[in-house]
């Protein structure tokens, strides 16, 4: 069994079942980041997801963007940096930075 295969396999299964699906991929990282380049997360149009692109810090925001990508078909590149606790913005508590590419499955 393999991580990536599972995630893309699930994405394909959802798509075959007629659901809207988007895939998010970590394309670059700086500093300490929890998941390596190439890590993936698949999201369906109901917000169900498999896989991960962080330790859980940015998944919520990525899923929101993924749902938008499913609706509009527009791929996007997202940047996440260090959390600013006061501002309550989405970010990585570990102090790393990651870039995540989100695309819709056609």
């Amino acid at each position: 069994m393999n991580d990536v295969e599972d995630i893309l396999g699930q994405a394909a299964a959802w798509r075959r079942a007629g659901r809207g699906v988007a895939v998010a991929t970590v394309v670059s990282t700086w500093g300490s980041s929890p998941r390596p380049v190439g890590s993936q997360l698949a999201v369906d149009d109901q917000g169900n997801f498999v896989g991960s692109v962080s330790g859980g810090c940015i998944e919520g925001a990525v899923i929101k963007e993924a749902l938008d990508a499913i609706a509009t078909g527009k791929p996007r590149l997202l940047d996440f940096g260090v959390t600013n606790q006061q501002a309550w913005e989405v970010g990585l508590a570990c102090g790393g930075k990651v870039q995540v590419y989100v695309e819709r499955l056609e």
Binding site: E5, L8, G9, A11, A12, R15, V23, E103, R104, L105, E106
Partner: peptide, 10 residues
């Protein structure tokens, strides 16, 4: 990502 690409990748 196109379906053909995903299917071929899998």
């Amino acid at each position: 990502m196109k379906r053909e690409i995903l299917d071929e990748l899998l």
